[in-house]
Simulated scan of single mutants.
Amino acid sequence: MTRHLLVPGRGIPRPEHWLRGLAEAHPEYRWAPEPPGPPLVLKDRVAALHAAVSESAEPAVLIAHSAGCITTVGWAADHAGPVRGALLVTPPYIDGFEPDDPSDLPWRVPRRRLPFRTVLVASRTDPYTTFAQFEQFADDWGAELVDAGDVGHLDSASGFGPWPEGERLVSELG
């Protein structure tokens, strides 16, 4: 059996957001952490993800959007656990961004190969990351790059509620 952990971005996903739709369609999926909304304190998010991954020896698939991708990569840089794979959807390019909370970790995205299978979904029209930056993330993390086309940030504001391609990618990871 495989656990599925949903790693939210900076804000609370709207009811029509594809990540919220996954949670509703699959009540066995668990938020890690529960969507708290701003401000985003990366060290707290990493700690919550670590607690969720560590609570069982059962393998997990991490499903992350936006800043949740940074949480996932930050967790993998300093922790290990039974993770089978990760779906990273439109990670933002935040190198040099200063955290809202001065006690937070500096936001320097780790660039090491991830120790589990990773699929990175990239957009050609994301307002936070260029396609070349997505390609560099995929190369650095050893991720398979999926070109989703002109999908903005692949969020509610870009018109994404249900996202069948995302469901397919999750099922392929386990």
Rank of each mutant, 00 (worst) to 15 (best):
Trp141Leu: 02
His153Phe: 12
Val121Ile: 07
Pro127Gly: 03
Val170Gln: 01
Val151His: 11
Asp139Trp: 02
Gly142Ala: 05
Val151Phe: 03
Arg117Phe: 05
Ser103Trp: 01
Val151Arg: 15
Ala148Met: 11
Glu144Trp: 01
Gly166Tyr: 05
Asp147Gln: 08
Thr118Ser: 15
Phe160Trp: 13
Arg113Lys: 14
Leu145Thr: 03
Trp141His: 02
Asp104Glu: 05
Glu165Lys: 06
Arg111Pro: 00
Trp141Ile: 01
Val151Gln: 14
Val151Cys: 15
Leu105Glu: 04
Asp126His: 10
Tyr128Met: 04
Leu114Gly: 01
Ala143Gly: 08
Gly142Leu: 06
Ser123Phe: 12
Tyr128His: 13
Arg112Trp: 00
Pro127Val: 05
Val121Gln: 04
Gly166Ala: 12
Ser103Pro: 00
Arg124Ala: 11
Ala122Trp: 10
Pro127Cys: 04
Arg111Asn: 09
Asp101Ser: 07
Arg168Gly: 00
Phe160Gly: 01
Asp140Lys: 10
Asp100Val: 10
Pro106His: 04
Gln133His: 01
Arg111Tyr: 00
Gln133Val: 00
Pro115Leu: 10
Arg112Ser: 14
Phe134Asn: 03
Gly161His: 08
Leu145Ile: 02
Pro127Asp: 06
Leu105Thr: 13
Val151Gly: 10
Arg113Glu: 12
Phe131Trp: 09
Pro115Phe: 10
Asp126Thr: 06
Val119Glu: 01
Pro110Val: 00
His153Trp: 12
Ala143Gln: 08
Pro102Tyr: 11
Asp140Ala: 14
Val121Phe: 02
Gly149Trp: 10
Pro102Ile: 08
Ala148His: 11
Ala157Ile: 03
Asp150Ile: 00
Pro127Gln: 04
Gly166Gln: 05
Ser123Ala: 11
Gln133Gly: 00
Arg113His: 13
Ser156Asn: 08
Ala143Val: 03
Ala132Phe: 04
Phe134Val: 01
Asp155Glu: 08
Gly161Met: 11
Leu154Trp: 13
Thr129Asn: 07
Pro162Met: 05
Tyr128Cys: 00
Pro106Ala: 10
Gln136Gly: 12
Ala132Lys: 14
Gly166Asp: 04
Ala122Lys: 05
Gly152Tyr: 08
Phe131Thr: 03
Gln136Ala: 15
Pro102Arg: 09
Thr130Phe: 02
Ala157Trp: 09
Asp150Cys: 03
Pro164Met: 05
Asp155Pro: 05
Leu105Ala: 12
Val109Ile: 15
Pro115Glu: 08
Val151Ser: 11
Asp104Met: 06
Thr118Ile: 09
His153Thr: 13
Ala157Arg: 15
Val119Gly: 02
Phe134Tyr: 15
Leu154Pro: 00
Arg168Pro: 00
Gln133Pro: 00
Gly149Phe: 09
Ala148Tyr: 12
Glu144Val: 11
Ala157Ser: 14
Ala132Leu: 11
Thr129Pro: 06
Leu145Glu: 03
Leu120Met: 12
Arg117Ala: 15
Gly142Gln: 07
Pro110Gly: 01
Arg117Asp: 14
Ser158His: 06
Thr125Gly: 05
His153Pro: 09
Asp139Gly: 13
Ala148Leu: 09
Trp141Glu: 01
Pro162Leu: 09
Asp155Met: 06
Leu145Arg: 03
Leu105Val: 11
Glu144Thr: 15
